[in-house]
C-alpha cells in the first residue's frame, strides 16, 4: 500500500502559467473558508435558530474535542501517512484517567497527575505506531488499524464491566465551568490549536513534516532524519489524542470505551475538507481548524433543520470522498498508480 498517496503535487515546470497556479493555491487556501461561510449562510436561511449567539457558542463548544484531535492528526497527514488509531488511543486514555483520578472504582487519586499520565499513555501509543511504521516498514494505515484494536482492547480490560465515574470536584468544575460564556474545555482546545500552530511554524517537526510529505526522497537526500521525525509526529499526535480522551472523560464525568467512537472519521473528514492533502506536504493546523468548523457546523445545522442524526456519518463519508476527488481530480493520469 505504499502508493496510498494521491500522487505528488503536479510538476511545477511548463505546466500551468504562474498566475493560474497561484489561483489554484488561493482556491486551496481560501476555498474551505468560502465553503464555511456559504454553509453558515445556507443554514441561517433554513433555520432561524442557527444564527443566534447561543448556537454559535454551542458550535464552538462541540467543536472543542474534534479540534484537539484534528491538530494532532494534521501532523500525521502532512507526512503523507494516515492515523486510524484515534478511537483506540482515546478509549485507553479515557479509561486510564477515569481510573487514576478520584473515582467510584478504586481509591487511587493522582489529581492532575492522572491527566499527565493519560497524555503520556497516548504518546506511548503514538510512539509504538511510529516505531512499528518506520522500523518494520508497515504502511501506517495497517499499523494504526491494529493499534486501534489494541487500544480498545486495553480499554475494555480496564473497564471490566463496571463504569468508573469521576468523583473529583475539580473535574466537575472543569466540566461545567465557563469562562466568557464558553466552556473551559473550549479554551483548552484553543490552547492546543495555538501550540499546534507554534509547532508547525517554529519547530523542526512542523517544517520537516511538510518537507517529508511533499517529497520524501528529497527530504532523505538532504539529510533530514526522516524516520525520527515521522516517529516524533506520531508521538505528538498520540499525546494529543490522549488529551482528547481526557476531555471526553471530563465532559461525560465517567470513563467509557466508546469515548472516541466516530471521532476518527470526523477528524479525517475535517482535515481533508479543510485542505490538508492526504498525499502529504500541504495544509496545516489552520486549514484543519476551518475543516473542523465546517464539519461541526454541518452536524449542528443538519440537526437544526431536522435531519436524522444517523445520517451524519453517511454525510461525512460522502463529503470526504467528494473533497478528495475534487482536490485530486487535476492529478489524474492514465498511468498513475493508486492502490
Amino acid at each position: 500500500m505504499a502508493p496510498a498517496r494521491l500522487g505528488q503535487a503536479p510538476p511545477e515546470t511548463g505546466r500551468a502559467p504562474a498566475r493560474s497556479r497561484r489561483r489554484a493555491s488561493l482556491l486551496a487556501d481560501y476555498g474551505p473558508l468560502g465553503a464555511l461561510v456559504l454553509l453558515c449562510l445556507t443554514f441561517s436561511v433554513l433555520s432561524p435558530q442557527f444564527a443566534t449567539w447561543g448556537n454559535l457558542r454551542n458550535v464552538l463548544d462541540s467543536a472543542a474535542v474534534l479540534a484537539v484531535i484534528t491538530v494532532g492528526l494534521t501532523f500525521v497527514l502532512m507526512l503523507g501517512a494516515i492515523d486510524l488509531s484515534i478511537e483506540g488511543v482515546m478509549a485507553t486514555a479515557a479509561l486510564s484517567v477515569a481510573l487514576l483520578i478520584a473515582n467510584t472504582r478504586n481509591d487511587i487519586d493522582l489529581g492532575f497527575l492522572a491527566i499527565v499520565a493519560a497524555v503520556a499513555l497516548g504518546a506511548c501509543f503514538g510512539l509504538a505506531t511510529g516505531l512499528l511504521s518506520t522500523g518494520l516498514k508497515i504502511p501506517s494505515f495497517m499499523t494504526t488499524l491494529g493499534m486501534s484494536a489494541i487500544g480498545i482492547g486495553i480499554a475494555t480490560v480496564l473497564f471490566a464491566g463496571v463504569q468508573p465515574s469521576v468523583t473529583s470536584p475539580a473535574m466537575g468544575e472543569w466540566a461545567s465551568g465557563q469562562w466568557f460564556g464558553l466552556t473551559r474545555l473550549t479554551f483548552v482546545a484553543i490552547g492546543v490549536v495555538i501550540v499546534g500552530l507554534l509547532v508547525q511554524h517554529y519547530t523542526r517537526l512542523g517544517r520537516y513534516a511538510r518537507a517529508i510529505g511533499g517529497a520524501e526522497d528529497l527530504a532523505l537526500l538532504s539529510g533530514i532524519r526522516v524516520r525520527r521525525y515521522k516517529t516524533i509526529a506520531f508521538t505528538f499526535a498520540g499525546a494529543v489524542y490522549g488529551l482528547a480522551g481526557v476531555m471526553v472523560t471530563i465532559q461525560l464525568g465517567s470513563g467509557i470505551v466508546q469515548a472516541g467512537v466516530g471521532q476518527n472519521f470526523a477528524a479525517i473528514t475535517a482535515a481533508v475538507v479543510g485542505g490538508t492533502l492526504l498525499s502529504g506536504g500541504r495544509g496545516g493546523v489552520l486549514h484543519s481548524i476551518v475543516g473542523v468548523l465546517i464539519v461541526t457546523v454541518l452536524v449542528n445545522g443538519l440537526v437544526l433543520i431536522g435531519v436524522s442524526p444517523y445520517v451524519q456519518g453517511a454525510v461525512q463519508g460522502v463529503i470526504v470522498v467528494a473533497a478528495v476527488a475534487i482536490t485530486a481530480w487535476p492529478l489524474r493520469q492514465r498511468l498513475r498508480v493508486v492502490k
Binding site: 500500500m1 502508493p3 496510498a4 498517496r5 494521491l6 500522487g7 494516515i82 486510524l84 494505515f141 472519521f265 479525517i268 492526504l278 463519508g317 460522502v318 470526504v320 470522498v321 478528495v324 476527488a325 485530486a328 481530480w329 492529478l331 489524474r332 498513475r336 493508486v338 492502490k339
Partner: peptide, 13 residues
C-alpha cells in the same frame, strides 16, 4: 477518480 482504495472504502464504511 483515482482515490486510494482505503479512503474510498472508509467513506463507504
Amino acid at each position: 477518480a483515482q482515490i486510494p482504495s482505503f479512503l474510498v472504502t472508509l467513506g463507504g464504511l
